[in-house]
Amino acid sequence: MTPTSTFGVNTMLSSKHFFLLPALLTLVAIILFPLLFTIRVSFSSWDVFQSGLDYIGGKNYGRVLADERFWQSLGRLSLLSLISVSLQYTLGFALALAVWKQVRGGRFLRVLFLIPMMTTPVVMSVIWRTVFHESLGPANDILGMFGIGAVPWLSSATGAFISVLIVEVWQWTPFMFLLLLAGLVSLPREPYLAAAIDGAGTWRTFWQVTFPLMAPITIGALIIRLIEASKIMDTVYVLTSGGPGTATETSSYYIYIRGLRDFQIGYSAALSLVYLVIMIVSLTVIAKLLLRLLVGKVG
């Protein structure tokens, strides 16, 4: 390689880097800077009575480890996310299968199924709160028509947990439906022809052909929804405010209370980072397990 050509390559690389610069700067501005700032804040005692970035070492992290309420909220969130995403997946898959084949009114149904996802969570939570209102809401009225007594939707721990679950499933099943339907539409026809020639029935075709072929999309859909579900905040805020007691208090709602209500900026930054690390680790593990379980099985 001659010096001239080295110079040419270097020039080319430099100009390439130059063109990458806007994207890199954007990345730094929108991801790295807030993250680094949050890390810095988490080592400070920034609070309502103490502004500014002093340095208090790992005190905030020590508090997080001893914060029973945070860990309880994390456990509650895990349970809520796993149940709601499982239900969303099951229902979403069932609905996608229902409109996958040509059915009468298929287009109408597709639009209908997507409506919940397109509404604003806060607005829908307000409407659901009215639905679940125990003396004035329609939910208990309808149950009453069937002779079922009033259900304490929002005033009992179990009822409130189920109510949040119902709203989550109602709102986000369409997202699963959309992804899984897109996956179904893109499946190759040959395996189905082969299965038909082999005389496989509907049930067997589903388990032996459709389900394995859908595995990569399933994993993607589940992970995306788990990430989203782990951030649940607005539904809880409007529907139950985390109550009764702490029965529906999730991690993000708890961090909101500490950060924005109590104005414990340093401590809530530490909570957010611990939460972020836990989420990254647990979702990575879940993704690996799903890959092994679903794709590994195909292999």
Binding site: V48, A157, G243, P244, G245, T246, A247, R261, D262, Q264
Partner: peptide, 16 residues
């Protein structure tokens, strides 16, 4: 806000 938030949480836990 921290004092009242803490008190409300304790009261809510007892109420529940």
């Amino acid at each position: 806000s921290q004092f009242m938030s803490s008190m409300a949480n304790g009261v809510a836990e007892a109420m529940a």
